[in-house]
Design a protein around this nucleic acid. Sequence first.
DNA 1: TATGAATGAGCATTCATTCAT
DNA 2: AATGAATGAATGCTCATTCAT
Lengths: 222, 222, 222, 222
Amino acid sequence: MTTESHDLELSALAQRRTALKRQQITEAALSLFLRNGYGKTSMDQIAADAGVSKQTVYKQFSDKETLFQEIARGVTANSDHILGELATVVDTPVGTTEDLRKVLQRLARRYLDAVMEPHVLSLRRLIIAEADQFPDLAHRYHQLGPERGLDLIESAQRRWAEQGLIVAPDLRMAASQFAYLSLGSSQDHAMFHPGQTPKPAERARVAKAAASTFLAAYGRDR
Amino acid sequence: MTTESHDLELSALAQRRTALKRQQITEAALSLFLRNGYGKTSMDQIAADAGVSKQTVYKQFSDKETLFQEIARGVTANSDHILGELATVVDTPVGTTEDLRKVLQRLARRYLDAVMEPHVLSLRRLIIAEADQFPDLAHRYHQLGPERGLDLIESAQRRWAEQGLIVAPDLRMAASQFAYLSLGSSQDHAMFHPGQTPKPAERARVAKAAASTFLAAYGRDR
Amino acid sequence: MTTESHDLELSALAQRRTALKRQQITEAALSLFLRNGYGKTSMDQIAADAGVSKQTVYKQFSDKETLFQEIARGVTANSDHILGELATVVDTPVGTTEDLRKVLQRLARRYLDAVMEPHVLSLRRLIIAEADQFPDLAHRYHQLGPERGLDLIESAQRRWAEQGLIVAPDLRMAASQFAYLSLGSSQDHAMFHPGQTPKPAERARVAKAAASTFLAAYGRDR
Amino acid sequence: MTTESHDLELSALAQRRTALKRQQITEAALSLFLRNGYGKTSMDQIAADAGVSKQTVYKQFSDKETLFQEIARGVTANSDHILGELATVVDTPVGTTEDLRKVLQRLARRYLDAVMEPHVLSLRRLIIAEADQFPDLAHRYHQLGPERGLDLIESAQRRWAEQGLIVAPDLRMAASQFAYLSLGSSQDHAMFHPGQTPKPAERARVAKAAASTFLAAYGRDR
DNA sequence: TATGAATGAGCATTCATTCAT
DNA sequence: AATGAATGAATGCTCATTCAT
């Protein structure tokens, strides 16, 4: 019993240490993948940056592919905080069309800001680059990122429709339109110009125009 | 004289042969780059697929980078036929808002179809993937592709505005909105789902909605 | 604690093993460079001769250039024993000009013998051959080899001058003259006739003549 | 007959053209070999620099080795003008020891200047570098260059000895000593410091000291 | 005879992965 | 469990030489 519990304690320690190493590997690998891409990141570099031996890496992740997928999966799941932020915007109670306009503008702006974060852009480029080799990952990313954004917008619009503030026969289409009115141009530009994102003033203009066009098309009031 | 003219004939033949080889290399390389990406395409493979020796490849293109850039440049310049097609749509004379709606729908649809062509998508993914390593190329691509599309739309809208069919204080913004209303969702989806493009019915729906939303925002008639 | 000390033991062993491998690489590379020159020595050959993997070579020496420079540096530094030997000759106390003549002869002979060692000649040829590509190395070699030889001769001559045995207004010039009286011809010949060095009798003649000419020019006695 | 003579004319023309090409190849190759060494000079480069096709090179010189040897041979034979210049110095009639001192100084200086010519140094380095691979060439070079210089000095000294101006039991040794008193230090330094040669003032000092030491040892007058 | 292409090998360097200690 | 070494294959690139036209 004593030995057993001793073993258990040890294994708990070991587990913790293992988990720590795993964390270090994950962080190093993610940073490298985002910075240099999958192909140009070597296992040696990852191990070195993580401060562990290559064996340790291979013990935890059997493959380079596995390592990549697990890491990318993890990061992908992290879009929660973005969505959370958008949710608070979207949950603001609105009474009038003018209220709605303001919320839509704020929503467009926050969404744009979130999507223009450097590491979001890097991840996006990385996953697009490897979409051929890792189709499942790409699919998952799309579902957990862009699609969930659309879900959120859609459900908000449903509420506004119920309030009679907007009329939209195809909610999904409306959500999609709003999203790409807000992000399309900047995201596209950023994909081809690494490191370049629109200045705040430009972002504001885009957000305002997105809200305005959306309301013109779907707003019920006027 | 005889020898000189003989030399000239020979060199003309040689030039033709050289040009042919260059063509073969270009085609093989482009196909491989589009299919496998820059990093996973080897010069050996290119030479083999082109049916020439590696030396011949290196004589014509001093570098792998050079080869890639020259090829990508060439393809990028080829967006002319897409734009030409769009131009004919856009140049259709319109009298009423209903005419305009039809033209906008056709424009959105043609644009979407063009952009959903497999090799256009592949090229797009390829260039996004290598944007870090080849920023000039990415910039050029963006300018010659997306930006020229916007130019075309913008100038069409200017004419419609002059006709009093639409009112748009910021023409560039309006053009951009129309473009991403038309393409945003499908392009995004396609980037993450290689080989998947929307079915014709879906494309029609998207085009119709894009025209409708645009008109609601900018149409002056009703 | 146990694991820590265990780790340390391991790393000590590992260090020793690593050092051994490095030694093997160094020896193999030096031998090949001296025999075949820099350009005709391949990293594969070095690894094979050293009995290690190419990776091991590259882990220890990042480059072929680095490998070459570090090795050549190491060997260059090894001229100490030659100089040491010369120093003992030169430190022999001398009272008369006849003593001095004997010492000068012995000095010339020892110097000549040292410089005619096959691996000294090979190294000299190697470094001359690569002087364009590795100018720093060549400079260093010249400084640590020939120049230090001159230093030693010069300081000895200073003592003899202080003793009144010789008169030399320009000690450096005198030292240089003695050196090339002793070595010039043989060294030159050897550079162009790999493997050929003067026989002992010839060396003796040269040494005697060098001492004699030097004394005629700088000796103060007669 | 007419045709024959016509053929002969043609072949004369062809021969002349061939000789010209050979000349061009020779010049290009020599320049490249001297600048970059044997190993780093490619046949492609030679052909390109010569403005001829590789086939032409191979038709005239069956091998890279052959090409190198023939070229180096040719250049080596060209040391005549240096020797000629030295000969005129050496042939100056001398009556007194002071005359002789001046001639020796001039001789040392001219010799030094000749040997410090950049392309002489380059050739020397090139041949030393390849002495292992081309021993015959190295031997020939040594014989036609340094050795002939010694011959010339030796025969001059013989005349001076006959005049009673100097006394030298071993003329060859005396000649060699004078040569290396004059050149040794500078030549050695230059081998390890490509592009660096002593300034005129330093050359003058060395030449003066060489003559002085030589006269002290062998002059009969004082 | 001269040209471009081909051949076939070689080299420096890197990588993912596994082995031995 | 962790480290250094090894493996074995690949990659970009270059070269001397030969072929075909």
